[in-house]
Amino acid sequence: MKTRIFGGHADRMGLVQVPGGWLLRLLVAMILGLVVGLAFAGDKVEQPIEFPHDIHAGKMGINCMYCHTYARRSRVSGIPPLRKCINCHQNIESVKDKPRIKKLFEYWEKQEAIPFKKVHDLPDFVRFSHERHIQRFYFELGRPVQEVCGYCHGNVSSMTVDEKVEPITMGWCISCHQKDHPNPTNPADLVGMKSVYPRMNIADAPAQGTAANTSHGPNDCWQCHK
């Protein structure tokens, strides 16, 4: 049934109205896929200072949330305030004369924020809450930070400036929301997830704690389109 719907859609939109047989359509699909791959490779946005995530998150292993503090508290993860960069760099003699650091301190002298370009810019009609996702995957499920952030933002610790490597389209977000997770069988695991299952107490409803019981992310339109 699902595929039926997709088929109907495509026809109406005319996007893949390629005349000819199935072989031709396969070729078109493969070429499109190739274009997609090329399109996403090296999609590097030019920034006022080419901030090296590979040195900070990669070589030095700084937790993403050391700088992007607000990810656990707010809708946005936040470009760190200039103060945060200066906090460390005012004491790091070894890189004091590097050109990027000099440029950083120029901004600090002028008390002016660095005008970074936004790389993952969702449209205004989408409500994405970093807090909700970080609380769920990092604090409650205890996944490593680079895996949690990296799921959407890619392998940032190998990049200098941030690059958009995932499509972050609606369909892509929904593909994760539709993944069925088994409910935790251990009541202790559920405690941290009260924010997701506020009324569930596995001790009261042991049937919920079986391997067969699964749930997935929000499927309501209004959760993201508030």
Binding site: L82, A113, V119, T169
Partner: peptide
Amino acid sequence: YTSIDSGVETVKSYVNP
């Protein structure tokens, strides 16, 4: 052709909040 931008809008942090 989607509404998702990259590298278009500027995002400025606070300086010393």
